[in-house]
């Protein structure tokens, strides 16, 4: 599914600039532990998280994460958004909870990047 479809499903706000909404997202991973994002091969996927510090963006960068969704309406600060823009990592914010975010995406066909769903 595309980033644009994900935005629609989550009613999310795109907070980075020049974001390519046609970017294809194949898989997703949800974590508040960056150690887990780094330790499991979740490369090329969407990261769903409730953490908004700049390390989330840096983690996404080194782990080849395609885009990040922040849940519960949490927004990173302006420097974190700028870092994401410089690394070309789209950031989305949804008011939905973590559970609802994952549930809606799963319902629409998005599957786990951790390899635990077919």
């Amino acid at each position: 599914m595309t980033l644009g479809e994900i935005r629609g499903i989550l009613g999310a706000l795109v907070i980075t600039q020049r974001t390519d909404m046609n970017k294809e997202i194949g898989r997703a991973y949800c974590a508040d532990l960056m150690s887990d994002v780094l330790a499991f091969s979740v490369t090329q996927s969407l990261l769903i998280t409730g953490l908004t510090n700049v390390q989330v963006v840096r983690t996404a960068d080194v782990a080849d994460i395609k885009a990040i969704v922040f849940v519960q309406g949490k927004r990173p600060d302006i420097d974190t958004i700028a870092t994401a823009d410089s690394k070309n990592i789209p950031l989305l914010v949804t008011n939905l909870s973590m559970f609802e975010t994952c549930g809606r995406l799963y319902e629409n066909g998005l599957r786990s990047a951790a390899g635990d769903t077919p």
Binding site: A31, D32, L33, M34, S35, D36, L38, A39, T49, L51, N53, Q55, V56, T59
Partner: peptide
């Protein structure tokens, strides 16, 4: 609270 400190870093470097 920043999302680190679960004792996975060094094993992950090894991996």
């Amino acid at each position: 609270e920043m999302g680190f400190g679960s004792g996975m870093g060094l094993p992950n470097i090894k991996k």
